[in-house]
């Protein structure tokens, strides 16, 4: 089962390697890992999508908490968070296919961000499953390059994950 885990860490060099090292050496499987700064420059936030049963997730949380530079760990319950990924894709599409692709983009809430005579570059930011569906729709036109971020997630409602003072 997939779990979304948010981790607040000290914004030090080397933190990411400690975290990724922990996952590999303890045999935890991760689908994606995304890291970036927060509004507090001293704190970074990592979002991890991990695969495993309840025992594994409990161990992941506990082992993460043992790292000195980890400030807070939170595993979201199902439906507790909003998650997004960004996908950039370059499609081999000449003038004859442009209209079709633009229609797909319009319906899927994607954008055309670059255009040449033989290619179109598209951008979409959405939930993982929407990105997958978009990719399926675009694939027949000939994907020549694709890049996507890991998932980032934030809690629904007014509650936040904040470091303890």
């Amino acid at each position: 089962m997939k779990h979304t885990i948010s981790v607040l860490v000290e914004n030090h060099s080397g933190v990411l390697s400690r975290i990724s090292g922990l996952f590999s050496r303890r045999g935890f499987n991760i689908d994606s890992l995304a890291v970036g700064p927060t509004h507090d420059p001293a704190v970074s936030r990592i979002t991890i999508i991990a695969d495993g049963d309840d025992y594994t997730v409990e161990q992941i949380e506990k082992q993460l908490n043992k790292l000195v530079e980890v400030i807070k760990v939170k595993t979201f319950a199902q439906g507790e968070c909003m998650a997004r990924e960004l996908l950039l894709v370059k499609v081999a599409a000449g003038a004859d296919k442009r209209q079709d692709i633009m229609t797909i983009c319009e319906i899927a809430n994607a954008r055309v961000i670059d255009l040449t005579t033989g290619t179109m570059t598209l951008e979409i930011c959405d939930k993982n499953e929407h990105l997958r569906r978009f990719e399926e729709l675009i694939a027949p036109y000939g994907i020549i390059e694709m890049v996507r971020t890991g998932t980032i997630a934030i809690q629904k409602g007014a509650e936040v994950i904040a470091p303890k003072k």
Binding site: Y55, E58, Q59, K62, Q63, N65, K66
Partner: peptide, 8 residues
């Protein structure tokens, strides 16, 4: 004293 040892 190590919470990670409990249940491991």
């Amino acid at each position: 004293i190590d919470p990670a040892e409990i249940g491991k």
